[in-house]
Structure formats: structure tokens, C-alpha cells
């Protein structure tokens, strides 16, 4: 029964799906990693993604210009991030509550805009598959890795970019310091709040990009609550990945690949109850979280607003 799954076409299919499915998680989780490393827990990711995905979809629906859609999604994400930063950094509102508020705001506003501006579920033609010349001709490897739309490549490119940001730049050093000991950073003339503004807005722009990936590259439709909680999984993946880009990459890939695997298990008619199959990725995530929780260090100042004290 299980050797059905071991055919090469199925294995390629699982890996290919896993890589594609992971892309929106990667954007959102890498962005959230930046915000959290600076000490801000942004639980509004899902709402930001909804706004970004709607903005991108609307622009493409009206103009057909895909890159303009991406740009607008990033800008809308950044605006949502600015809102989060004003509330949680400047006004120091409790981060968990403000994040949930932002999520509800994004969920409600995107649905409202959809009804007013579009009205019913429509489709657009999104980013096409971009076969990378030469590389995509490599058997198996080419099919799995170099046969995706451009936003998928971009998502994976962000992994080394964020790693470089953290480990090799002065800004990254500031982000890490501000998230772990803002008093120390402040005493050295680092503007804690400015760094946090940057991190939150950057993270939210990435969430906007994650939304665009859904609406104009992978699904090419828009529907109310299209993310269906994907942004919250992305937040969990940040913990899963131990606040490191590589960890987030592994987490996203694992989650997405197991999801792809369970779909194949069902499609191939392997006799597992569908309820169990769909639980698989979540169960696995919890399992890894339990085992990982001991070894990772979360940013010490996460969720703590900064204020100079006597």
C-alpha cells in the first residue's frame, strides 16, 4: 500500500508541492522573525496578509500589472506595520492584544473592501511558472526546484538575505541587541524605538508579500479570510525555527512538505482516515515545538515595551 508513495513521480510531486506551499509561510515567518528579534510580537500577521493579498489581487484585477500588485501589497503591509508599531512601540499597548486587534482589523477591512470593490469571487491570471534555463532541465532536481513562479524563488532568496541582515550588518546587530537588552542598546545611543519601528514595518511588509504570493501567484483568486489562519502558523514557525532564518526555513519546509505528503496519501487512496491525515502537519509542529523548546533562547525583551527608567 505504501509503496504507492515511493514511486518517483509521487516523491517528486510531494517535494515540489512542499517547496511551493512553503513560500507564503516563509515570507510571513521570516518577517515575523525580524520583528520578534527586535522584541515585538506581532500577532497581526494574518490580518496583514489578508490586506496585502487583497491589495495585490485588486490591483491585478483592475490593471493586470503583477509587479504593481506586489508593490502595493508590500506598501499596504508596511502601512499595517506602521499602525502596529505606533500602537505597540510608541503607545506601548500590550502586544498580544494589539496584534489580535490588528488581525481583526485586517480581516474585517479586507472583507469590507472586497464587498465594496469587487463583490463576488473572481479570478485573475497570476505570476506564471518561470522555468530557470538550464537548471530546470536537470532531471528530478530541475523539476522540483527550478520550476516555480518567481515569488517562490524570492521567498527562498529571503532566507540568506535575512541571515545576512542579522549576522553581518550593523542594523542586524542593533535588532538583536534591542530585542534582548534594550537598556544596553539605549545606553550606547541606539534608538530602541526607531529600530523596533523598522523591524515591525519590515516584518509587516514581508507579510504583505506573503499575502500577494497567495492571491496573485498561487491561488489567483480572492475570497474573504483567504489565509484561513496561515499567518498564525507563520508565528508558530518563528518559535519552531528558534528565531533563526535557517530554522524558519526548515520549519516551513517541514510543515509544507508534510502537508503535501498527507494530500498525496489521500489522493493515492491510502487507508488512513482523512481527519488523521490533515492533523499530521499540526501534530508534527507541536511535537517539534515541545522538543525544541528547551534548547532555543527567545529574545529576552520579546513583548516588553521599552521605557527609560530611573
Amino acid at each position: 500500500m505504501f509503496n504507492e508513495l515511493l514511486q518517483s513521480s509521487v516523491l517528486i510531486g510531494i517535494l515540489y508541492s512542499g517547496i511551493r506551499l512553503a513560500a507564503p509561510y516563509l515570507f510571513a515567518a521570516l518577517g515575523e522573525t525580524v520583528a520578534q528579534r527586535a522584541g515585538v510580537l506581532d500577532l497581526g500577521v494574518d490580518g496583514i496578509m489578508l490586506m496585502g493579498s487583497f491589495a495585490a489581487f485588486y490591483v491585478v484585477f483592475e490593471t493586470g500589472n503583477l509587479w504593481l500588485g506586489v508593490a502595493v501589497a508590500v506598501a499596504v503591509g508596511a502601512l499595517m506595520g506602521l499602525l502596529m508599531a505606533v500602537i505597540s512601540v510608541t503607545y506601548q499597548a500590550e502586544q498580544g492584544i494589539s496584534g489580535i486587534g490588528l488581525y481583526l482589523f485586517g480581516l474585517g477591512l479586507s472583507s469590507l473592501l472586497f464587498r465594496v470593490m469587487i463583490g463576488s469571487v473572481k479570478g485573475v491570471s497570476g505570476f506564471p511558472i518561470l522555468r530557470i534555463p538550464v537548471l530546470s532541465d536537470i532531471p528530478v532536481i530541475g523539476e522540483i526546484f527550478f520550476n516555480h513562479n518567481i515569488l517562490v524563488y524570492l521567498a527562498y532568496l529571503m532566507v540568506p538575505v535575512i541571515w545576512l541582515l542579522f549576522d553581518k550588518t550593523t542594523l542586524g546587530l542593533k535588532i538583536r541587541a534591542v530585542g534582548h537588552n534594550p537598556e544596553a542598546a539605549d545606553s550606547l545611543g541606539v534608538s530602541v524605538n526607531r529600530v523596533r519601528y523598522f523591524a515591525v514595518i519590515f516584518g509587516a511588509a514581508m507579510a504583505g508579500l506573503a499575502g500577494a504570493t497567495l492571491s496573485i501567484a498561487q491561488l489567483n483568486v480572492w475570497q474573504e479570510n483567504i489565509t484561513n489562519g496561515l499567518g498564525f502558523i507563520a508565528v508558530a514557525l518563528v518559535y519552531f525555527g528558534g528565531w533563526r532564518p535557517l530554522g524558519v526555513l526548515l520549519g516551513s519546509l517541514l510543515f509544507a512538505t508534510v502537508n503535501a505528503l498527507q494530500l498525496w496519501v489521500q489522493v493515492k487512496g491510502i487507508n488512513i482516515p482523512s481527519d488523521l491525515a490533515v492533523m499530521l502537519p499540526y501534530v508534527l509542529t507541536i511535537f517539534v515545538l515541545i522538543f525544541a523548546s528547551g534548547r532555543v533562547r527567545q529574545p529576552a525583551a520579546l513583548t516588553k515595551p521599552f521605557e527609560r527608567s530611573g
Partner: peptide, 21 residues
């Protein structure tokens, strides 16, 4: 071939299920 997503609203997973089929 039948697959279930385990949700009524998981648009992304439904799309991937279709791709898988």
C-alpha cells in the same frame, strides 16, 4: 481519487489538493 482538507475555508490547501490530483 478523493482528498479532504479538513476545513471548509482552507483555500490554499484546497488549491494544493487540486494540484496534487
Amino acid at each position: 481519487n478523493v482528498s479532504y482538507t479538513g476545513s471548509f475555508g482552507d483555500t490554499a490547501l484546497a488549491a494544493e489538493a487540486a494540484n496534487t490530483h
